[in-house]
Amino acid sequence: QVATSTVRILGMTCQSCVKSIEDRISNLKGIISMKVSLEQGSATVKYVPSVVCLQQVCHQIGDMGFEASIAE
């Protein structure tokens, strides 16, 4: 089973930030795809909930120095 959710990301300033986040999160087990939008300050994450949760994704992004939260 696959889920798609949006994560809000604060602190991104350039495409390099976007690429860094996409590269790191895409390597997590259970992540199918991730598309980060600098303009919208968010990311669309396609993932397998039984393998990885959005809290883990937000935590990983937080470790990179950005502020991440699950969009309502």
Rank of each mutant, 00 (worst) to 15 (best):
V45E: 03
I70A: 08
S37Q: 07
V45T: 01
I61C: 05
K29D: 14
C14L: 03
G30N: 02
M34H: 00
S26H: 08
I9W: 03
S37L: 07
I32K: 03
V18I: 06
C53Q: 10
V51R: 04
P49T: 07
H59K: 14
I21C: 05
T6K: 09
N27R: 13
N27Q: 14
I61T: 04
G62V: 15
H59I: 14
G11W: 05
V48L: 13
A68C: 15
S42T: 14
N27V: 11
S50C: 05
C14N: 05
S33F: 08
S69G: 06
I61S: 02
Q60G: 04
E39P: 08
Q1K: 12
D23R: 12
S37V: 06
T4I: 13
V51Q: 10
L54N: 01
A43Q: 03
S16P: 04
Q40H: 14
V45K: 01
S26K: 10
C17A: 06
S5H: 12
T44K: 12
D23A: 10
Q15G: 11
G65D: 02
I9C: 07
G41M: 11
E72N: 10
E39R: 08
Q56Y: 15
R8D: 09
S16C: 05
I70D: 04
I70F: 10
V48W: 15
F66R: 03
M34K: 00
S37D: 11
S50P: 03
Q60L: 15
L28E: 03
V2R: 00
C14H: 03
Q40S: 11
I31D: 00
I31W: 02
M12S: 03
L28D: 01
E72V: 10
T44S: 11
L38H: 01
C14S: 07
V48K: 08
I61E: 04
K19D: 13
K35M: 08
I9S: 00
S20A: 10
C53M: 08
S5I: 09
M64G: 02
Q40L: 13
F66Q: 03
M12Q: 03
D23K: 11
Q40A: 11
S5G: 15
V7Q: 00
T4S: 07
S50K: 07
I31A: 00
A3E: 13
Q15N: 11
I32T: 02
C17K: 03
I21S: 02
P49G: 03
G30D: 03
G11S: 00
V52R: 00
M12V: 05
K29M: 12
A71K: 08
I25D: 01
T4G: 04
S69D: 06
M64A: 05
V57I: 14
Q1A: 06
I61Q: 04
L38V: 04
S33I: 05
A43F: 04
D63N: 12
C58D: 04
T13R: 14
C53Y: 05
Q15R: 08
C14D: 07
G62P: 03
T6G: 05
L28I: 12
T13M: 11
Q55P: 06
D63H: 15
A3Q: 10
D23H: 13
S33K: 08
I61W: 05
T6L: 12
M64F: 04
I70H: 06
I31S: 02
F66W: 05
Q56F: 13
D63G: 08
I9P: 00
S20F: 07
A68H: 03
L54F: 03
S42I: 13
C17T: 05
I70P: 09
M12H: 01
N27I: 12
S42W: 08
K35L: 07
A43Y: 02
C58S: 10
S26T: 11
G30V: 09
T4D: 04
T13S: 10
R8M: 12
E22H: 07
S16G: 09
L38M: 06
S16R: 13
T6D: 06
C14P: 01
P49E: 07
T4L: 10
C17R: 02
A71G: 09
Q40F: 13
E72F: 09
K19S: 09
L38A: 01
K35F: 07
V18W: 05
V2T: 15
S37F: 09
L10A: 12
V18L: 05
E72M: 09
R8A: 08
C17P: 04
K46T: 15
S33P: 00
Y47G: 02
G41R: 15
V2C: 15
T13Y: 15
I31H: 01
C14A: 03
G30C: 09
A43K: 01
N27D: 10
T4W: 09
V52I: 15
D23Q: 13
E72W: 08
D63V: 14
M34S: 03
L54H: 02
S50Y: 06
S50N: 07
R24H: 11
V2N: 05
H59N: 14
S69C: 10
Q60P: 02
V45W: 01
T13D: 06
M12A: 03
V48Y: 15
L28F: 05
T6C: 10
K19H: 09
K19F: 08
S16M: 13
L28Q: 05
V36H: 00
S50E: 15
P49I: 07
C14F: 02
C17F: 05
K46V: 15
G41N: 13
S69L: 09
E22A: 06
V2S: 12
S26G: 13
R8F: 12
A3I: 14
V2K: 03
I9R: 00
K29H: 12
D23M: 10
R24V: 09
E22M: 09
S16V: 11
V45F: 04
T6N: 09
I21M: 02
F66I: 03
T44F: 11
I9L: 02
L38C: 06
I61F: 04
T6A: 05
I21W: 03
Q1E: 15
C14Y: 00
I70C: 14
M64S: 01
I61K: 05
V45G: 02
S42C: 13
V57W: 04
G41S: 13
V51W: 06
V45N: 01
V57Y: 03
Y47N: 01
V18N: 01
L54E: 01
L10G: 11
E22V: 09
I70K: 03
S26M: 12
A71E: 12
V18P: 12
Q55A: 11
Q56S: 09
Q15D: 10
E67M: 10
K29G: 08
R24A: 10
E22R: 04
C58Y: 08
M34W: 03
Q15I: 11
K29A: 12
V18Q: 05
G65Q: 04
I32G: 00
R8L: 11
K46G: 04
E67N: 11
S20Y: 07
S42F: 10
A43I: 07
T13F: 15
S26E: 06
V57D: 02
R24N: 08
D63M: 15
Q60T: 14
E72A: 10
D63R: 11
V51A: 06
E67D: 10
C58Q: 12
I25R: 01
P49N: 04
Y47T: 02
M12C: 06
D63Y: 09
R24P: 02
S16I: 11
G30Q: 04
S20K: 15
G30A: 04
G11K: 01
A68F: 06
K29Q: 11
S20P: 03
S50L: 08
I32R: 00
S26R: 11
A71L: 14
K29T: 10
T6W: 11
Q1R: 06
K35N: 08
C17V: 06
T6I: 13
V48S: 14
E22S: 05
Q55W: 12
V57Q: 02
T13K: 14
I32L: 08
L28A: 04
R24M: 09
T6P: 04
R8S: 09
V36S: 00
Q40E: 11
I32W: 04
V48E: 15
A3P: 03
